[in-house]
Write a protein that binds this DNA or RNA. Structure first.
Lengths: 185, 185
DNA sequence: CTTGATTTGTACTGATCGGTAAAGTGTTTA
DNA sequence: TAAACACTTTACCGATCAGTACAAATCAAG
C-alpha cells in the first residue's frame, strides 16, 4: 500500500480546518484520520510529534500565509493606503466574511495557548506592527498609528467572535468596512 | 456521609472557572471532580444531565449576572451616560482587565457553539440591544446607536482575545477606555 | 528484476473518557 | 423511632483517547 493522494503539504490545510472546527482537544486522531484519509501509521510517519506537531505546523503555515499576503505588503508597499485596503479585502476573503474563525484567536482563548504561546503572540504582534508601520508611512504619527493598528486587529478578532455567535456574516463585513474607514481617515 | 461543604449553587462559579480554563471538551469529569471536591456520584446527583447540563447552568448563571449588572442598568437607568460608564467599569472588573476570558465568546468559537447556540446568541444580542437602547436614550439616533453598540461589544471581545494572546492586561484597559470615549462622544 | 527507502494498514497498549449502579451514610420529617 | 430523603462513596461499564510497533505494500532508482 502506497501513496494514495497525499503529500505532507496537502494535509496541512485539512488539519487547519479540523482544528478550526473542533479546537485542539476536540480534534481526535480518529477524526483527523478520517478527514485526511490517512491512517494513524501515515499520520505519525509525517508528524512524529503527534497532534502537537500537527498544530504547530498548521500555526507555522498560517504565519507564513499572513506574512506573505498581509504583513509584507503592509510593510513594503510604497502605497500604504492601498496596502491597507488590500489587507481588509484579503482578511474578508480569508475569514469568509466571518464564517471561518481565526485559529490563532481560538487557541489564544483555549488553555492550549500555553503550549503555543510563542506562535500565538507572534501572530498578533506581527500583525499590529506591520499595520502600524503602514499607517506611519501613510502619514500618521507613531503613537497614533500604533493605537489605530491595535484597535483594528481587536475589531477584526471581535467581529469574528460575534459574527459566529450571531451567525451573521454581514456583521463581519460591517466591522471591516468601519475599520477600513477608520484606518484611512 | 452527607453534605461536606457544597451547595449546588456554590459549585457553579467553580464550574465556570473550569470551563474558562479548559474549554468544554478539555474539562474532563476528573478535573471537575477534583476542583469542585465532589465525586462523580455527587456531580451527577446535582447535574443529572452531565457535563452538558453543567455548562448550560453556567451559561444561565452568566446570563443572569449580565442581566442584573449590565443589561438592566443600561435599559432602566435614567442617566444613560452614567450607566454606560458603569458598564465599562463592571466589564473591566468582571474580566479582570483581560486576564479572564469570556466563556460565551470562547464557546462561540468552539464547535460546542452548536450545542449552546441559543444561549450564546442571546448573550450577545441582549448586550447589543441593551447598549443600543442606552445610547438612544442618551440622544443618538436609532441607526447610529445600534452601530455603536455593535462596535463596542466587538471591541470588548476582540480585546479579550488580544489581551490574552499578548498577555497584556493594559491592552484591554486601553481598549475599554477608547470604547467608552467613543460611546460617549 | 532487485534493492532500499518510503508509505501504509493493522493490531495493540495503557490511560482516560463520560456515564451508570447501587450500597452506604447522614439528616429531616412523620 | 422509623421511614423518607439528600448526598456520597466505590466500583464498574463500554468507548475512545493518544501513541507505538511492525510487517506488508508500494515506490523510485539502478
Amino acid at each position: 500500500m502506497a501513496r494514495t493522494v497525499a503529500e505532507r503539504s496537502d494535509v496541512i490545510p485539512v488539519l487547519a480546518e479540523i482544528f478550526r472546527e473542533h479546537a485542539f482537544e476536540g480534534a481526535s486522531l480518529s477524526i483527523i484520520s478520517e478527514k485526511t484519509g490517512l491512517g494513524k501509521g501515515s499520520l505519525y510517519h509525517f508528524f512524529p510529534g503527534g497532534k502537537e506537531e500537527m498544530a504547530a505546523v498548521v500555526l507555522k503555515e498560517i504565519d507564513t500565509w499572513f506574512e506573505v499576503n498581509i504583513y509584507r505588503p503592509l510593510r513594503d508597499s510604497d502605497d500604504p493606503r492601498a496596502a491597507i485596503i488590500a489587507m481588509c479585502r484579503s482578511v474578508t476573503d480569508y475569514f469568509h466574511s466571518g464564517r471561518r474563525i481565526c485559529l490563532v484567536g481560538a487557541f489564544a482563548l483555549d488553555n492550549v495557548r500555553d503550549r503555543f504561546a510563542g506562535q500565538v503572540r507572534e501572530y498578533f504582534a506581527n500583525w499590529k506592527s506591520a499595520l502600524a508601520l503602514a499607517l506611519q508611512k501613510a502619514g500618521q504619527d507613531g503613537v497614533q498609528s500604533s493605537a489605530l493598528a491595535e484597535e483594528a486587529v481587536i475589531s477584526i478578532q471581535g467581529a469574528l467572535v460575534l459574527a459566529r455567535a450571531l451567525d451573521d456574516p454581514s456583521l463581519f463585513e460591517r466591522a471591516i468596512r468601519k475599520t477600513e474607514q477608520r484606518l484611512l481617515s
